[in-house]
């Protein structure tokens, strides 16, 4: 069966949402729920997903779903988990599907609390690198030198100057038993990781790279291709950490320069419009190279 056929069969995230064409997040959610099955309660904070997947009177959700606020999805999920435990409903699992704004920024304190308490929640961050729902404002997950509407490139600026927050490492530092990154460019791998995470108890974290055509500035039919180039240049490392140790990495088949990835997106367009951006492009290439070394992303490197 093709992936498309699998996805259509018994989908738990269905028609009735209004995501943009080519939305990586909507695709991710459909495959996340394929992997979890229907015995889950999903908590989603305010953000793209909440907005496009809950227009009152319509619902794409075939599982119980709750949106409460922007910064408290981890705590709502902790409450759901506590209630299920109190009621002895052990077969039902709790899932957060959030965006990067709520995860990296406004809900970070609540996430840290949930992790520290060891609550039985699988937290999935669908990362599109900015507050896309409100027009693409800068978040703690926005890539270095991307142009966002609150930190735009201009005569005196080349966009965001800071590094992206290394959230998987921060989560792992809380002793979370399972931490992984995934991409909508590799849906089978994504499903496999969600299934694996469901085998663990306690707080688990998966960060999924979900390219955003309208926010990143590429045609909607190129979502998966953009996702793949991000991985192949080393800027988006795909790996698994179990009990604090890296246990798998997605190997890059053929390493490509970061410019192949950046050039395809208007959010990095200012780096190519004149010679100003060369030093910055070199810096981004160095970041990718550091990732490749740190996670041993090349085929010939030691890790399996």
């Amino acid at each position: 069966m093709s992936l498309q056929q699998i996805a259509r069969k018994e989908a738990l995230f269905f028609s009735g949402h209004r995501a943009c064409h080519g939305c990586g997040m909507a695709l991710a959610v459909r495959h996340i729920l394929k992997a979890t099955g229907k015995n889950v309660i999903v908590v989603t904070p305010t953000g793209c997903l909440e907005t496009f997947a809950s227009p009152y009177g319509y619902s794409p959700w075939q599982v119980p779903w709750i949106h409460h606020l922007f910064e408290n999805a981890p705590s709502i999920a902790s409450g759901v988990a506590a209630a299920l435990k109190a009621q002895g409903r052990d077969s039902v699992r709790v899932l957060v599907i959030a965006g990067d704004g709520s995860t990296f920024d406004i809900g970070f304190g609540a996430l840290s609390g949930m992790l520290e308490r060891g609550d039985d929640v699988l937290y999935i961050c669908t990362d599109n690198g900015a507050y896309m729902n409100t027009g693409g404002q800068r978040s703690g997950a926005s890539p270095t030198y991307s142009s966002t509407t609150t930190d735009p490139a201009g005569k005196e600026s080349l966009g965001k100057t800071q590094m992206m927050k290394d959230l998987p490492a921060i989560v792992a530092a809380h002793s979370a038993p399972y931490v992984a990154t995934a991409s909508v460019a590799f849906l089978k791998d994504l499903q496999k990781k969600v299934k694996k995470a469901m085998l663990y108890h306690g707080p688990r974290y998966i960060q999924i790279d979900t390219p955003c055509p309208s926010g990143w500035g590429f045609p909607p039919e190129r979502t998966l291709e953009i996702g793949r180039t991000g991985i192949d240049c080393g800027l988006v490392p795909i790996f698994e950490m179990e009990n604090g140790k890296i246990t798998s990495t997605h190997k890059i088949k053929k390493k490509i320069p970061v410019t192949d990835y950046l050039k395809a997106q208007t959010r990095f367009g200012h780096l190519f419009s004149d010679n100003r951006g060369q030093a910055e492009l070199d810096e981004i290439q160095a970041m990718a190279d550091r990732n490749i070394e740190r996670y041993a992303l090349l085929r010939e490197s030691g890790n399996k």
Binding site: I41, V43, I66, H68, L69, E71, N72, P74, S75, I76, A77, S78, G79, V80, A82, A83, L84, A86, Q87, G109, A110, S112, G113, E116, R117, D119
Partner: peptide, 20 residues
């Protein structure tokens, strides 16, 4: 549930209440 803030205390019981 011993939480890290009052914001989370109110949120935890909200989630629990929604779960009957």
């Amino acid at each position: 549930v011993r939480v890290e803030s009052e914001f989370s205390a109110a949120s935890v019981i909200s989630g629990a209440s929604a779960t009957a």
